[in-house]
Write a protein that binds this DNA or RNA. Structure first.
Length: 1152
RNA sequence: GCUCGGAUGGUGGAAUUGGUAGACACGUUGGACUUAAAAUCCAAUGACCAUUGCGGUCGUGCGGGUUCAAGUCCCGCUCCGAGUACCA
């Protein structure tokens, strides 16, 4: 009986479907203790119209092998499949054809399923999910509502119900609340809160909700009519279709994923994912540790100092005031000096004072910032008028400062008395309350009363830096052109230049900016900021190398330590102070962060390495209120709205423009019908075309738009959710059976039993999208007690791409006098040989020339030495080319009518050869191999084995159809091992199985195989296990083994890889129960025990010959035997070895 | 630029803690069977030299090093792939 793979595969596929062989059991289905669970999942497929090519099933086959292996090993395996069925392609198709996307999606799914079924996967289809099914997206909407009803507690690092936050606001306002919120969140007290109207409260709460509506700059793709997430843009154009993307402000739903940045980062450590994938996520989250430094703005225009009369002319003169203060500090009166000595030493229970500190337009003699206390010493040569004193006291009081004044004589005469007074005053004053509402420490610095700059009534520029140790190297500040302060600080002289630059920068698309990395552009604003430590003025520039969206949109430029700053400084002739000891920075910046290099020209940082200097610099800045440690993340909040039809509707309606959630019990809110899938004429999303898209809050149902009265009937949200909404939680849906899905995502029992995905396999293209978002949602749902786990996918394997081998024919670009329109293709080998010989193509051979002249029909050929550029390569369908690269010319003419009159010049043997090149598999390259065809020609088991045999699962590799015959032959050999070896015996059941004990040799072969294959499967090294099977079958064939003792375990061993043939063989062995849950064979060491070993005998490390020696021999015995051997003597040629290395059981090496 | 992978015959790829480099398969060549083809089976197949037999030399991207012994470990490069990018 021959191996009839078609009949066998059909038979078992039907059997599995009918018996529901691979249905996973729920914990309650077990009578006793449930089997341990194991969850194997493939990345959610999007059912595209193109169907599967051989690259797609690679991961499915690997996961299927693992799932089947785990079933043999006693696990209750969950191995489901379903469809991510909302998405752009179906919608694009709908726009073009008017067909409802649900319909195309359905057709595509059907085709997908047919293809999948042919490969014999052990999917539990009873649990299938589709994201576009209302029963499914009901829960996507439900999760959205949970996010809306939650805020993020920064102290606890946990999402919590928004009602908790409301209670806190009622009691204490938002000043003491450590919550993640929008940057522009205003401060309010409990009284403020309680006085707010409901709408105002709602407005404020939106700043805290984990999904919120906000005016955001988005990536708008006009061609697709929708916004795109950052990970949907590749090189400045849309990932799908390659359309241009522009920045645009829109009101959008966003997800506060940035709140989870730290957890998403640290959580990676415990995941069994590839390093490169973790790395990609790390980069995407982009954590940088550094400091936020505040630079007071001295917007007094340069060069105008002398035109202003004095320093009391307004608020725009702090530059001069600072100079004055500095002067005062350097020349204190005697009394000031005495008091400062006391205050500076922190003699007053640690209170910190500043001397000659600028507050608004006034210079205070001493100030304690933390208590808002000013101490003035009157008299001496820093004398001021009485009016001035009163005026200043009034001003300082208005700014929240207490002022106490002492006379010169008091200070000098009785300093203890003065100090005591100050101490008492300090004790009686309340400390400022640290404001912790804000998301960043930047904002909390802002809110400290009287931090540097603010106390001067001036604004500051905050800049994030990872190198606070180089603070003394700052020689300018660069703002992003979009920075809010730009228009405010620009001096009249510079206004025109700045405006022109800002406008030009805004017009430049992302793409242009990207293409033009090299050119250095920027403009001076005319304004200056004060260096917080040296108090020197530093110029403020704008430049588009600074990104508005990263950090604060401002850079403190350290040209000696940052290459971009260096380039900028050089280009605009800005000084480049050097703060590195013994480093030449004249040509380029010194960016190394080695601790060995010491800081120089930096006051108190001199002589320190980076590691010591950074904390010291931060401390100094913090002490002055001019900066603080800061952790910055690149990860932005994710825009969640799409101006699309084919996605989940938001369960949201609007009252007074404020979003309200539809109550859970009325979900799902189903997608309405529209007559066209395009945006409306006035630019609203497609849902704006729906006639019935309003929410009746009394009847709790969707009603006609005409009923909108803004009293009980309100408009519904017109955006839909993005693709990642449904795919961020689907893994948990599979944990519940179809019938029990109404009341929850999955039952608590099921969630606790299955927990999370043990093995997840898919492509690496989802590294930052799907995999990050689903981790985010899982953490959130875990916080809120919905899920028992923190992470969705414990182990993840990225399958490599299978590449296609494209085939090219070469069209000769004829150069003739006369008719130039003839199409001539030349066999590749002729071209190659002719180039190799360096001749004119026409001189290749006489036969060739006569063919050509025949075709040319009298036209004259202008010929020159053959070059590859004389030919145009054209992709031809790989199905027309055989494994010897020979083209089916007639076949090509049939499917490409434009070549029906073309001429093909063949080799002498009549063959026409193509050239091949490895490229990505794609329709446009005509190199797609369809798994259906492979199943037809070789069978599913062959396809499965070959895909695994190609190479390591994670590696990209080309598909070569020729290789299939190898694995197919192997299956035939395997079959022969079980069935009659002698074809003359024939008959019905011709399995020739012996019940006699197996030979020692065969047992060894079997157990060697068990050991290796089991190890390989655990290591996901499927390619080597296939070769192990081949070796095993080759050996058993050699041994003429037909013993049941061997063949039964072998069938089980191979069943994860080639399940159809394994079932058939198992049945042939006389079993009525299927093979899928038969115990995995046990490895027994004893069968591998050898008593001798073939030793390689090496001389100076080079193997010369081998010797079979008993393993019982001692080192000395071995040496004796080896040295006695004549081959050894021959190698030594009479020399005496210096040394003999013997590793028993391994090797003998003779040195000498 | 940065980060992470990778480089082994004509091809896909093996090689566990450093211990017989090239397993297994494809392809190629020769042979058997056959009227013939297909299928099947057998043999050879890293390169070079020798071939009358024995055999010898060189070989894992390049240059060094450690070691009795290096594809494997260390140092320095080259090239290829992927991701990411004015990220301060």
């Amino acid at each position: 009986m021959a191996y009839d793979y078609k009949a066998i595969e059909q038979k078992w596929q039907k059997h599995w479907a009918k018996e529901q062989t691979f249905k996973a059991r729920q914990p309650q289905d077990f009578t006793g203790e449930p089997k341990p669970p194991f969850y194997v999942l493939d990345m959610f497929p999007y059912p595209s119209g193109a169907g599967l090519h051989v690259g797609h099933p690679l991961g499915y086959i690997a996961s299927d092998i693992y799932a089947r292996y785990k079933r043999h090993s006693g696990y209750n395996v969950l191995h489901p499949q379903g469809y991510d069925s909302f998405g752009l392609p179906a919608e694009q198709y709908a726009i073009q054809t008017g067909q409802h996307p649900a319909k195309t999606t359905e057709t595509n799914i059907k085709r997908y399923r047919e293809q999948l079924d042919k490969i014999g996967f052990s999917f539990d289809w009873s649990r299938e999910v589709r994201t576009s099914d209302p029963k499914y997206y009901k829960w996507t909407q439900w999760i959205f509502i949970q996010l809306f009803e939650s805020w993020y507690d920064e102290a606890a690092q946990k999402s919590k119900p928004i009602s908790d936050l409301v209670q806190m606001f009622e009691k204490e306002g938002n000043s003491g609340v450590q919550a993640v919120c929008n940057d522009d969140t205003a401060e309010f007290s409990a009284e403020d809160w309680n006085a707010f109207s409901e709408d105002e409260k709602e407005q404020h709460l939106l700043n805290y909700r984990l999904t919120y509506l906000a005016e955001t700059e988005v990536n708008w793709c006009p061609a697709l009519g929708t916004v795109l997430a950052n990970d949907e843009i590749v090189n400045g154009v849309s990932e799908r279709g390659g359309h241009p993307v522009v920045r645009k402000k829109m009101k959008q739903w966003s997800m506060r994923i940035s709140a989870f940045a730290e957890r998403l980062l640290s959580g990676l450590d415990d995941l069994d994912w590839s390093e490169s994938l973790k790395e990609t996520q790390k980069n995407w989250i982009g954590k940088s540790v550094g400091a936020l430094v505040k630079f007071p703005i001295l917007s007094f225009p340069k060069g105008e100092e002398n035109t202003k009369s004095g320093y009391m002319t307004g608020s725009n003169n702090s530059y001069l005031l600072l100079e004055k203060a500095k002067e005062n500090r350097n020349h204190p009166t005697e009394a000031e000096k005495a008091l400062w000595t006391q205050l500076r030493g922190k003699k007053l229970s640690g209170y910190k004072f500043k001397q000659q500190h600028l507050i608004g337009d006034y210079i205070a003699d001493f100030v304690c910032l933390s208590k808002s206390l000013v101490i003035e010493v009157d008299g001496g040569y820093h004398n001021e008028t009485k009016e001035y004193d009163e005026e200043s006291t009034e001003f300082l009081n208005s700014k929240g400062f207490e002022v106490i004044r002492f006379k010169n004589e008091e200070v000098i005469g009785n300093i203890d008395e003065v100090l005591e007074q100050i101490q008492n005053k300090l004790d009686s004053l309340p400390s400022y309350k640290k404001n912790q509402t804000s998301k960043t420490s930047e904002a909390s610095i802002d809110k400290k009363p009287l931090s540097l700059g603010e106390g001067q009534g001036e604004r500051t520029i905050s800049a994030f830096t990872t190198r606070p140790d180089t603070i003394f190297g700052v020689s300018f500040i660069t703002l992003a052109p979009e920075h809010d302060l730009v228009s405010e600080i620009t001096t009249p002289e510079q206004r025109e230049a700045v405006d022109t630059y800002v406008k030009a920068a805004a017009r430049r698309s992302e793409r242009e900016r990207m293409a033009d990395v090299k050119s250095i552009t920027g403009v001076f604003t005319g304004a200056f900021a004060e260096h917080p430590l040296t108090h020197k003025p530093i110029p403020i520039w704008i430049g588009d190398y600074v990104l508005a969206s990263y950090g604060t949109g401002a850079v403190m430029a350290v040209p000696c330590g940052d290459q971009r700053d260096h380039d900028f400084a050089k280009h605009f002739d800005i000084p480049i102070p050097n703060v590195f000891e013994g480093i030449d920075i004249s040509e380029e910046a010194y960016t190394d962060k080695t601790n060995a290099t010491k800081i120089a020209n930096s006051d108190f940082l001199n002589g320190l390495g980076v590691l010591e200097a950074i904390p010291k610099a931060i401390k100094a800045l913090a002490d002055m209120g001019a900066g603080d440690k800061k952790i910055n993340y690149r990860l932005r909040d994710a825009v969640f709205s799409r101006q699309r039809y084919w996605g989940e509707p938001f369960p949201v309606y609007y009252v007074n423009d404020l979003p309200k959630m539809i109550a859970e019990q009325h979900l799902p809110l189903e997608l309405p019908e529209v007559e066209k899938y395009l945006p409306t004429e006035d630019g609203a999303p497609p849902l704006g075309r729906a006639t019935d898209w309003a929410w009746d809050t009394e009847a709790n149902q969707v009603v006609s738009n005409v009923k909108i009265d803004h009293k009980s009937v309100f408009p519904l949200e017109l955006n839909t959710m993005p693709g990642w909404a449904g795919s961020s939680w689907y893994l948990f849906r599979y944990m519940e059976e179809q019938n029990n899905r109404d009341q929850h995502i999955a039952s608590e029992e099921a969630l606790n039993y299955w927990k999370n995905v043990d093995l997840y396999i898919g492509g690496s293209e989802h590294a930052t999208g799907h995999l990050l978002y689903s981790r985010f949602w899982t953490k959130f749902l875990n916080d809120r007690g919905v899920l028992p786990v923190e992470e969705p996918f414990k182990k993840l394997i990225n399958q490599g791409m299978i590449l296609g081998e494209s085939a090219f024919v070469y069209r000769w670009n004829l150069n003739v006098r006369g008719d130039n329109s003839k199409t001539i293709f030349v066999s590749k080998s002729i071209i190659d040989k002719s180039i190799e010989r360096g001749i004119n193509l026409i001189d290749y051979s006489e036969a060739f020339a006569s063919q050509v002249y025949n075709i040319l029909d009298g036209d004259q050929l202008i010929s020159s030495k053959t070059q590859i550029s004389h030919f145009s390569p054209l992709h031809v369908d790989v199905s027309l080319v055989n494994t010897s690269n020979q083209l089916d010319i007639e076949g090509l003419k049939k499917i490409k009518p434009e070549f029906k009159d073309a001429h093909f010049i063949t080799n002498e043997d009549g063959k026409f050869l193509v050239s091949r090149e490895v490229e990505k598999m794609s329709k446009s390259k005509f190199n797609v191999v369809n798994p259906d065809d492979v199943c037809e020609e070789y069978g599913a088991d062959s396809l499965r084995l070959y895909e695994m045999f190609l190479g390591p699962i994670e590696q990209a590799k080309p598909w070569n159809t020729a290789g299939l015959s190898g694995v197919h032959n192997f299956l035939k050999k395997l079959w022969k091992l079980y069935s009659s070896q002698d074809p003359s015996q024939g008959g019905e059941s011709d399995f020739q199985i012996s019940n006699q004990p197996a030979s020692k040799e065969s047992l060894k072969t079997l157990h060697k195989t068990i050991k290796k294959v089991t190890q390989d499967i655990e290591d996901f090294s499927f390619n080597t296990s296939v070769s192990t099977f081949m070796i095993c079958v080759n050996e058993l064939t050699q041994q003429k083994c037909n013993s049941r003792e061997i063949l039964e375990p072998l069938a089980v061993l191979i069943s994860p890889y080639a399940p159809h043939i394994a079932e058939e063989l198992w049945e042939g062995l006389g079993h009525s129960e299927g093979i899928s849950e038969v115990d995995y064979p046990l490895f027994e060491e004893k069968h591998l025990k050898e008593d001798s070993k073939t030793y390689p005998i090496s001389f100076n490390g080079k193997m010369r010959f081998t010797m079979d020696l008993s393993l019982d021999l001692s080192k000395d015995d071995i040496e004796e035997i080896v040295m006695a051997d004549e081959r050894t003597q021959k190698q030594l040629e009479g020399r005496t070895p210096k040394k003999v290395i013997i590793v028993p059981g391994k090797i003998v090496n003779i040195v000498g």
